[in-house]
């Protein structure tokens, strides 16, 4: 049997790699990739707990389905925004996009 901790370890690792990607990449799409990684890590976490804690109801699985849904929607909208931004300023280097402030 594979202990739960191993799954959690993988999930945590993926999550932190995703964080690193979000915080350190300059391409906006690369940031989105990091976000997707984070979401996947969360999904693994949810599924593992769902399988180990509550196999009859599988609430974890259901939750993971919803996360999946939202991730897809969010990826679509995010990319649309990136396209729109790209049309206006000809690049998607987040280092240089700093107008989201007071």
């Amino acid at each position: 049997m594979i202990p739960l901790n191993w799954y959690l370890f993988v999930s945590g690792m993926l999550f932190c790699i995703g964080i690193f990607g979000v915080l350190s990449r300059r391409n906006a799409i690369a940031i989105l990739m990091g976000i997707e990684l984070m979401l996947n890590a969360a999904n693994i976490n949810l599924v593992a707990f769902g399988r180990f804690m509550d196999p009859s109801v599988l609430a974890g699985h259901v939750f993971a389905v919803f996360v999946l849904t939202v991730a897809a929607a969010e990826a679509a909208v995010g990319l649309a925004i990136i396209i729109a931004v790209y049309r206006n300023i000809e690049h998607i280097n987040v280092d240089k996009i700093n107008i989201m402030k007071w």
Partner: peptide, 8 residues
């Protein structure tokens, strides 16, 4: 994990 590391 290795793939993810390479992604970022």
């Amino acid at each position: 994990i290795i793939s993810a590391a390479l992604v970022v």
